[in-house]
Design a protein around this nucleic acid. Structure first.
Lengths: 371, 371
DNA sequence: TTGTATGCGTTATCAC
DNA sequence: GTGATAACGCATACAA
């Protein structure tokens, strides 16, 4: 047992100065002015003598004044109308989670005057996106949260919002160069890199790995390309290109061949496949195929905790799902707007949520988590 | 492209009723009483006629009244003194994270009158724990957050706090039967189970796996036993006992043999070791050994994102670290006390934080994350 | 330029 | 039993 024990009694900074929270009134008294004057100084409203201004600022600094956000929010009982332009979960259940996050944030922030109107579009129809975006434009919103899944169609709206001075937050899909208030979300490249690591860790012998894009318009989804790039680059940076062969495939239903036929060809052409990386939430389709063909030695990594995938995760047909807290994306998106509109505090303009690795054994913490 | 598009315009429940947040005053008017009366009804302060009481309650229910916590916290400018009884990070850097979480929560809640006093004890000395606990007892705290790493010594204090009516929150180590306000933390058993899955996934051939307790008093740490049990049970439930052999070892420095000697013996006695699970944050010690002996085929899973481990994670000597958001544990512990003391809202009495799987490729999201 | 008064929703005190 | 009313800290309209 160490001698001394090192017992320590520690007060954190904030509590050291006698527990007194300083208010505008305190600054006013110390500066021999009224609270009104202090207020004008702190808010740069002008109409105040320069020497007084200096004095007040100095004292505020000295006393480490921090406005009471409760009182501020209480007095400012303005209603903030915010729009959420998001894919309709009815078309793709992945979008249920962000919607829940948005609604959770709204519930918490309702007290502070936050109101959210959802505009849900069909994620497979750019037309639908445009229609909802135009519907949104009819009302003067104070802020916008948007999942800009249609690259081209989004740009015009970004410019318009910029012009109108409406702050907007992007999530899920990053579109640079338009300076949104914030971007929240996926780091697609890195998640592909991670997927490669997981397959590599699970298979040390020479083999082929597949990057599969399933039922998706790859050309119009830059994040799928990023994921693939990350996956490929993992093997390059580790100097493993000679040992592992990466095969790319783009699987679509509704063409000449069924999905099964397309996959049959893949596995026939490349017999040493030991792992598959599905770049969207459709890993369950691959899992169905692998189960049917009894390809038990093939590992499978995919995305998103949707019901169809969880079944296979629990039976070990999917080994890992990568999850980037979609509920949190909606939640923090609205919170970001609130921080800007209501609490007037700055946020980091870019917030990547952790890339969670989900397997059967730690799944339940992520689906039960209330955040 | 699907026909129809399914465009949808949706207002969430809260906003449907015309944006009017109802206040005590609204209830009062509708019930033809004063706000004082409504207040007495809602807080069960008595001194109110039964029929009036019923009427007010009914109306409050009808209008779905929700108190404005801002106004409540503003008027109630009481200072809440809370104590945090935690291990001193100086002795074990693992405890830096919970401390940071505590301090982050304190900072956020300072506005609401929260004050936290830390009592830091030496995690290797039960004496030190007792001494700090007694020091704490000298002041009348409104709530306590404690990491009860010493089982026996904790019990007496729990009883005392119960008797005194001081709410206390446990984190990190679960001690049942004392009805804390809340327990936050680790699910030790499940994390051992998860560790087994990770080693199993990484090695499909017949082999031995090691459960290593390093520099720890196993007898007095029930959570280490739980971790080991979870690890062993993984192979049992999968009916893999015949394929994988689990070896247990308890490594201590300061005895007759050096750590290196103890491990040399282990690897000599069991030549087919392909994975090691270290049950505490000391995986780096094992990593040093494996590196030194060039045992590159041995996978390593451990706990906690401390600096010593991260070095090895980045060089792939440690394959995975399991992390149960230690910063979050401190943070939510204080938040839980605040919810009880300040906001008067109930929490779930048990909160398991997700078992995060950390590897080199997703590490940085977890160490940069501000939560 | 500066100061004063009022109100946000809730709680608590006090007089009736 | 009940109803006014002051106070919390901040913002702001308006008076000086």
């Amino acid at each position: 047992m160490p001698v001394g024990g090192g017992a320590k009694y520690k007060l954190t900074k904030e509590t050291q100065k006698l527990n007194k929270v300083i208010r505008i009134k305190d600054i006013a008294e110390k500066a021999n002015v009224s609270t009104g004057t202090v207020d004008r100084v702190l808010h740069n409203r002008g109409r105040v003598a320069e020497d007084v201004r200096q004095r007040v600022l100095q004292i505020a600094e000295e006393l480490n004044y921090k406005p009471n956000i409760l009182a501020r929010a209480l007095v400012n009982n303005k209603i903030y109308q915010v729009a959420a332009l998001i894919p309709d979960p009815a078309f793709d259940s992945y979008w249920k989670a962000p919607q829940e996050g948005i609604e959770k944030a709204e519930e918490e922030l309702q007290q502070y005057g936050m109101r959210v109107t959802q505009f849900c579009f069909d994620p497979f129809s750019a037309e639908s996106f445009v229609k909802e975006a135009e519907k949104l434009a009819a009302k003067p919103f104070d802020g916008i949260l948007v999942a800009p899944v249609f690259y081209r169609q989004s740009l015009a709206h970004f410019s318009k919002w910029k012009r109108q001075g409406i702050p907007f937050v992007l999530f899920n899909t990053h579109i640079p160069n338009y300076e949104p208030l914030m971007y929240i979300g996926q780091d697609s490249y890195q998640s592909g890199f991670l997927a490669a690591k997981l397959l590599h860790y699970g298979n040390k012998e020479k083999a082929s790995f597949v990057v599969a894009h399933i039922e998706e318009d790859v050309a119009n989804s830059s994040h799928l390309i990023s994921k693939e790039q990350g996956f490929v680059d993992y093997f390059v940076t580790q100097e493993l290109e000679s040992k592992y062969n990466v095969v790319q495939i783009d699987v679509q239903s509704g063409g000449k061949q069924t999905i099964t036929q397309q996959l049959d060809k893949l596995f026939k052409d490349t017999p040493d496949i030991r792992g598959v990386f599905v770049t969207n939430s459709k890993a369950h389709i691959m899992a169905d195929y692998l189960a049917q063909k009894k390809l038990q030695q093939v590992h499978l990594v995919g995305y998103d905790l949707i019901e169809e995938n969880l079944v296979h995760l629990n039976t070990n047909r999917i080994n890992f799902l990568i999850n980037q807290n979609p509920k949190g994306q909606g939640y923090w998106g609205i919170q970001g707007l609130a921080d800007h509109l209501i609490f007037k505090k700055k946020n980091n303009p870019i917030k990547y949520l952790p890339l969670d690795i989900i397997t059967k054994e730690n799944l339940h913490y992520y689906i039960e988590a209330d955040q």
